[in-house]
Design a protein around this nucleic acid. Structure first.
Lengths: 200, 200
DNA sequence: TTGAAAACTTGCCAAATGGCAAGAATTAAT
DNA sequence: ATTAATTCTTGCCATTTGGCAAGTTTTCAA
């Protein structure tokens, strides 16, 4: 009933909010496949985000520009995540950032109108939407607190320890601005980190 | 049917998600009054946030400590707002910040269990909850982007222009860390800002 | 009302971070 | 395979921001 290639998205949804196979089928029916090539734009600043993506495979980043015109990475996305500017998508306001692929990407998507329809027709799916929202809020808040409570070194250490794959796919200068420093400073942090790793 | 003193919270709810007088009545029935004195703690770090507050009158701040032990204001609350650590409240995890009153405050509150009950018994109220969540997410994101895209001077100027009452109730050092600078730097920013106001 | 505490401003200095540029290393494209 | 482009590291220097402390003003409480 559910096509085999949709197994990843089914698994993702039912992990977040378990539901019957029939319910799951009626929901994932609306998700359609899409592929992007490296460096494609998934969302551009100034446009209202119209599409809710599930990333099956690949890496992306969200970024904007600081007051001096430098690119700043605001989010990093990897496999098995929702990729969407939830502010823009749900509030129907222009996005303030770009979302761009860093590798070829394999995604499943649903449009705003379709998602509204699914929420209306399958109320049990609303709970999934709510949990994605709560989780995203918590992540954003955690990131904000991490910027305050931790040093850039700690943020670097945590990222490399919890998500080492990112370092194989994302240029360091993009990781640098995600961590909140320049590429020059990240280079120095890496030198320190490597030194300390040997001493411990 | 609805007691007169609940007019502010009724107005707040129906502005966000309009509903019939009967629906409104069945919802606000669960909100109970509470007052705090200046400097009371509404939430402490390490505890799970159990209460969802509507602030009818007063000022509060949320704060945490940075990696050097300095207090950092993470949010400022004034009248007619929801006051709650939504991450902690909905994910049932310990809060990472303190919420403290800055003036005497008049609030209406509902507990986590009661709110779950209301969401279950009055499904139309879920939409209100969802919109508070979306708005809070959008605010948090906007704040994050403002920290990147704008200078501290701009953040100061916007705050004083959009929310001048805050400056009458909140010490500048708390506003300073909210804006992302030390009190020393804010003092210099204020001097510059006053100078430019005259020249323009 | 008066004294104490807290808040705010300002000057001086130190430290941290960024800008820039050069060179090395890696990656991509023809 | 070769060349070009991008990425990464490093040194040097400039700038910014913060720390500290003193002095002033304001707020709070007895």
């Amino acid at each position: 009933m559910i096509p085999a290639e949709k197994a990843p998205i089914c698994e993702f949804i039912s992990k977040i909010y378990p539901m019957s196979q029939e319910q799951l089928a009626s929901v994932v029916e609306y998700f359609k496949p899409r592929e992007f090539q490296k460096n494609d734009f998934v969302l551009e600043e100034g446009r209202v985000c119209q599409i809710y993506y599930f990333m099956e495979e690949g890496f992306m980043r969200a970024y904007t520009y600081d007051h001096d015109g430098n690119e700043v990475t605001t989010a990093l996305y990897s496999s098995r995540q929702i990729v969407c500017d939830l502010s823009s998508f749900f509030k129907r306001i222009p996005a303030q950032e770009y979302i761009q692929t860093l590798t070829d990407c394999k995604l499943w998507y649903i449009t705003f109108e379709e998602l509204q329809h699914v929420f209306h027709a399958m109320p049990y799916f609303r709970e999934f939407g709510r949990m994605i929202l709560v989780n995203s809020y918590a992540q954003l808040k955690q990131r904000m607190l991490s910027m305050l409570q931790e040093t850039a070194e700690t943020r670097y250490a945590k990222l490399i320890e919890t998500n080492p794959m990112i370092f194989q796919k994302v240029p360091l200068k993009m990781i640098a601005s995600y961590i909140g420093v320049t590429d020059t400073s990240l280079s120095r942090i890496r030198k320190e980190y490597a030194k300390n790793r040997n001493n411990n």
